[in-house]
Design a protein around this nucleic acid. Structure first.
Lengths: 245, 245
DNA sequence: TAGTATTAACTAACTGTTTAATTAATGACG
DNA sequence: CGTCATTAATTAAACAGTTAGTTAATACTA
């Protein structure tokens, strides 16, 4: 939709550079925001000439939009997988919470970019990507809300406002990673240590197991099952971020 | 500590302008971040000459630091009030959740600025404000954590990682306001409508009443009491934010 | 060779910061 | 009290560095 150039031929060198630019843009925009990101930095990171960015994506905003759309699509696609109806509604939520945590952990550049976009929309600095957001995020939201409603109806989950549950699950994860560096300096702890991460991941899903289910024992059992089936992914470079930018 | 000029005489015209600059800076930095904020914009909003910002605060970063410190101090001071030991540990947490929600609601420019700072610390772009953060946020954190621990020990609250509870309470509120505009465009709802806000506020504290307490009936009772004693404050200009950059 | 992909050099606008000059406040002192 | 000297507060204008965006020329390739 935003792409000025639709990918016509199959992957030639052109597409490779285009992909490299997009990848570098996700990093740079996520790290510095739209205004803070530097076109030259993106070009250099993609080892492409600056003018190429204008060749493939109309301008800075065009590149930003493309980055957002690319990331959003992949994130939603990923999250939807955790909401498989073959699991009970409660288990779906637990899986979704874990999946969300793991996604932030392994793809923090995605998360940074989405956060940047959230504050940008908050300031009404977005212009007309409404249609894209609707088509992308709406299905995810609907599956989430209906999972809560279904769970409440079936007597598995406590009566609660569905939206509130969604805010709580995602908000806890987002806020953990968002505040972690500040918590680290303020309290002198190390929230990105693999052990701390593992504990937090388990703690989060245990909290929801205890909080949302009518039968807390049943919740705890599901937590154990889900934790067993979804081990924490390898975390590669979280300590490296200190050195980096 | 950061102030190059210590306030010597009592409020003359000089102090007024200094305060005006600081207030404008909080707005501008909160709205656009450190790099996005424009010195000219702050000067104009404070109806002060640009060079005055350099006269009172050494440079852009100095002004930013002053804004952060001012906001942080007030926020922490405000939050500590809700943690009065005369309430039971569980009630303290509920009050803290409500207090936090209300602060974001009434002083969104504070929240914006703190969020900006969080992502800034996340990028390791802070330089040496560590001491300030420690002295300011540590007492709050300690009172929060000890409230959870005390509540668990007394059998009022479910066994849970104290930090996890803190992340959940604050994270839910932060994420609600952070994601609301995006949710609004993505789902076509109006999260800043006073009725929606009231529902969300009640929903949040009800969720915690149901989630954290061993005796859910007791939790629900406390929720009712706290909601009665802490009515939602008047919200003045949340709809105006649409017009306002 | 014709069109696509890529590059290097260039520009116009913007922004944080400084400087030097001007006005207001404060204090000294006859 | 008044007059002057000194400091504090404020202003307008310019500087210096940076950045998004352009252009015109060049390499590649089908």
């Amino acid at each position: 939709m935003t792409n000025s150039k639709t990918i016509s031929t199959n992957s030639s060198r052109a597409e490779q550079t285009r992909a490299a630019i997009l990848k570098a843009a996700i990093r740079e925009f996520g790290a510095h925001g739209l205004s803070g990101a530097r076109i030259d930095a993106i070009a250099q990171a993609a080892s492409a000439n600056k003018a190429l960015l204008y060749y493939y994506f109309k301008n800075k905003e065009g590149l930003y939009s493309a980055a957002i759309e690319s990331v959003s699509a992949e994130v939603v696609h990923n999250a939807l997988a955790a909401l498989d109806p073959k699991y009970s509604p409660g288990e779906r939520l637990l899986r979704c919470a874990l999946n969300h945590f793991d996604r932030i952990l392994t793809k923090h550049e995605f998360q940074s970019l989405l956060q940047q976009e959230m504050v940008r929309v908050q300031r009404n600095e977005h212009h007309g990507e409404t249609a894209f957001f609707q088509s992308t995020f709406r299905p995810l939201m609907e599956r989430l809300l209906s999972a809560v409603e279904e769970g409440v109806r079936a007597g598995e989950l406590c009566k609660a406002e569905p939206m509130q549950v969604v805010y709580a699950i995602f908000g806890t994860n987002v806020f953990y990673f968002l505040s972690a560096p500040m918590v680290a300096t303020a309290l002198g702890i190390e929230p990105f240590h693999p052990q701390a991460l593992e504990a937090r991941r388990r703690g989060a899903v245990q909290l929801w197991g205890n909080a949302l289910f009518v039968d807390r024992a049943h919740g705890a059992k599901l937590v154990q099952k889900v934790l067993r089936q979804m081990p924490m992914p390898e975390v590669k470079d979280f300590q490296l971020r200190r050195k980096f930018a």
